[in-house]
Computed example of a mutant assay.
Amino acid sequence: MALNANDYPIDDYLAVKNSRNFTGKVVLVTGSSSGIGEGVVKLFSILGAKVVVTGRKEADVHKVAQEVQQLSPDKLKPLEVTADLTKREDVERLINETIKTFGQLDVLVNNAGIYPTSDIHDKNITDEFDLVFNIDLRAVVQTIHTAVPYLEKTNGTIIDMSSVSAFLAGKSQLTYCSAKAALNMLTEVLALELGPKGVRVNTVSPAVTEVDGIPKTWIELVRQLAPLRRVGEPLDIAKAVVFLASTDAQYITGENLVVDGGQHFLGNPL
């Protein structure tokens, strides 16, 4: 039903009211047993999705999965998969178990990653380079490669978790900055490749976020200097991921959504 011959269907406007309803959708979030990934998988569960909780430590995966089930409106049981994404067989098992359990995949969030600090003088810099690129980039490629046939069937979406460090160089962040910069380009290339197949690919770029492992000195610095005078929380990032996965973002692909409370205006002071 259109308002007039020159307007678009009003039903499309009315549908925005339900754009955050993920009932019937299957969402896989890597690195969802802690930190930002935990926040993302919890929010998707609250919004009705069937979710996959995965990480490298079985106890952490199980703990988050129990919490996620309680948050689900229908108390849907999440799939728990303990996996090391640097191993091809683990990636294949993760995707295969997702499809076996739920029959489809609608949203893939590539969140798993590490952020060590080192510079070019470190004697083990090339070993660290290999480790970071294996986890923060190669594992993403392998996961998408394995999952994309199923995402094409559902006109699904891929969201890669990057960082403002991809475009703000930081001291002692050589490997991390480089890997995230490469991830941003990967996202753009895949947006071009997969768009005609009906799959959208976007990036979310947080800055300092209050999760385990973030130095307190970084947190205090942000609180003192950043425009909003606070540090990001997992929920801040999760809201951005959910937006990009929602129908509200159905005409957005190949983009990088910076969610940092304005921290990038400081440059990279770390």
Rank of each mutant, 00 (worst) to 15 (best):
A59W: 03
S178Q: 10
F265D: 08
L137A: 05
K171P: 10
L71V: 00
L79Y: 04
V109M: 12
F44D: 08
V208Q: 01
L257N: 03
S172W: 12
G35D: 01
Y150F: 14
L190Q: 11
L183F: 07
P215H: 12
L94G: 00
T126V: 14
S172A: 15
K180R: 12
V211G: 04
T82R: 11
I95E: 06
V201Y: 05
K25G: 00
E188V: 10
L183N: 00
N256V: 15
D60E: 15
Q104G: 07
Q66K: 13
V222R: 02
P196A: 09
V91L: 01
I95W: 04
N21S: 07
S33F: 00
G262V: 11
A179N: 08
Q250F: 05
V132R: 06
L108Y: 02
V258E: 01
Q263S: 05
V222A: 05
I214G: 01
A65T: 09
P227W: 08
T154Y: 09
E188D: 07
K216C: 01
G198I: 13
N4C: 11
D74K: 10
D122R: 14
I114V: 15
E58A: 08
V52T: 15
E92V: 11
Q104K: 12
N134I: 04
D136Q: 11
R88H: 03
K87A: 03
V26E: 04
L192T: 15
D60G: 02
S32P: 01
N184S: 12
D12S: 13
S19C: 07
D236S: 05
T203K: 08
G55D: 10
V68K: 02
R230I: 07
A179R: 00
A139S: 15
N202S: 14
N124G: 06
I159W: 05
D90N: 11
L257F: 12
H145C: 05
D212L: 05
F129T: 05
V242W: 03
H62M: 10
K216I: 12
G35Q: 00
N134V: 03
Y251A: 08
T98C: 13
E233M: 14
P73A: 02
V140I: 15
T154R: 15
S118P: 02
A238T: 10
V81R: 02
L76K: 03
G24D: 09
D122H: 14
G213R: 04
D60M: 09
V140Q: 03
I99W: 03
A5Y: 13
G35T: 00
D106K: 02
L94N: 02
N256G: 12
A112N: 00
V132A: 04
G254K: 04
N96S: 15
Y13G: 02
V259I: 15
E58P: 00
G156I: 06
P78V: 04
L105S: 01
H145Q: 15
I158N: 04
L76F: 02
N155Y: 13
